[in-house]
Design a protein around this nucleic acid. Structure first.
Lengths: 231, 231
DNA sequence: TATTGATTTTTGTGATCACATTTTGAAAAT
DNA sequence: ATTTTCAAAATGTGATCACAAAAATCAATA
């Protein structure tokens, strides 16, 4: 059996086993440490995290509902393979979703929350300077999440996270094969637009942030990466 | 214990128990037959469908990941309550998601598939004429699903279904308190735009279809409905 | 050597059980 | 009548077991 490497995560008291399993698997998928196509076994995962099949199955069900995993006809479970077409769909959807989420947040976000965005952006820049890809990625996500959740009635966040999760394996491949991910972001542009409550400008900044960031990969570069990773 | 009424669904051979439980619960939520706020118990559901806690728990996990159910701090599970704000968010998100999905389908859909849309629309009109609300609702969903899934690489459909599911309970309330749901749709406009491969026109038709359909409820009417239902 | 066939192992699935926590309901006290 | 206390019932959770299906292994055959 393929040995599943699962980074141990800290487990807050009161967290259920299936929830913990969900978080650990999610994390592993997000950073691309589970190879697409590699089939996951319930017992294997349970053993790797020293628990039993029941909670692991629940975690797997959730992850498949979140689009992070695919159940085959054999009832086998795997990380979906990435294709150029799927990648294009994911980026386009991400742009649409996050522009919508940003627009819907403009009317709710407070100056205090915008200050927090500034702080997160600063921390991300520092992580980039230190060439800490993983930290930069996490801070980038936190920036976007903080913006979108400023809307208290927001219901889109799980969908945004789903897209991030489906993009995760590709990022993992990219980080493994590209010496250094060069980050470009339009966060300051977004912040300025937020201060002015300019909804269109916020949406434009978010759109550019996505399209020039991860979405900026050329088709040839994507094909190359996928080939390198043996997809 | 509150007796849970679960409409028996036909179960194709080979369908697992948790999958069957998922479908039955989903159906019940979609038509609003589970009151928001009513707490669901695993054992109660298992008993109602003559199975055991394990597969029911898996179904509940999936449904909560799909936004159809909410887990409270008590670990109790319930259908989320509807508010005017949430309703507004759901409609706005639905419009954005489905316009995107429609745009992404225009380049892929075949004339044959458009013919199928025509047939579905005709069937829906007949259901409306017969005042069969449930059938009309299902056919309306089939129309939209058929359009969006014309794109073979589409990844948005689960999200669209999630919004439908979250809107479901409200529809249930509306159908229970309004004598007759009057359906307005822009399907023929969408079909004409599809034949012309006019992406903007397709998106406009879908947007109008949503905003003038379920989204057309006035704020006062929504508040009234929610109050009637004792939310 | 490649291929078929049978046997063994692995795997997904769902029922059951034990345990801890929560909820409930009745009795007692204020 | 209201609140508090405490025991009983209900509930979520996770480990274990049995069963069937799928996969893998290996021997026999072409």
């Amino acid at each position: 059996m393929a040995v599943l490497k699962l980074e141990p995560l800290d487990r807050p008291e009161g967290m259920t086993t299936h929830e913990y399993a969900h978080r650990r698997l999610r994390q592993a998928i997000m950073v691309g440490s589970i190879r697409p196509g590699e089939s996951l076994t319930i017992r294997g995962i349970a053993e790797a995290m020293e628990s039993s099949p029941t909670p692991v199955r629940e975690a797997l069900r959730r992850l498949s509902s979140e689009g992070a995993l695919k159940v085959l006809d054999n009832r086998r479970i795997m990380v979906p393979k990435m294709t150029v077409e799927r990648f294009g769909e994911l980026i386009a959807l991400r742009a649409t979703l996050e522009q919508h989420a940003a627009r819907r947040a403009v009317g709710h976000i407070t100056e205090r929350q915008i200050d927090r965005l500034v702080a997160i952006d600063k921390a991300q820049d520092e992580a980039i300077a230190k060439k800490d890809n993983a930290a930069a990625l996490l801070l980038n996500q936190e920036f976007h999440r903080t913006l979108y959740t400023a809307n208290p009635d927001q219901i889109i966040m799980p969908m945004v996270e789903s897209v991030w999760l489906q993009l995760g394996p590709f990022l993992g491949i990219a980080m493994a094969h590209v010496a250094q991910l060069y980050f470009v972001d339009r966060h300051q542009e977004a912040i300025a637009a937020l201060r002015k409550r300019d909804e269109d400008a916020v949406a434009a900044a978010i759109n550019a942030d996505i399209c020039e960031g991860i979405g900026g990969f050329e088709r040839a570069a994507i094909e190359n990466l996928l080939r390198l990773a043996g997809q």
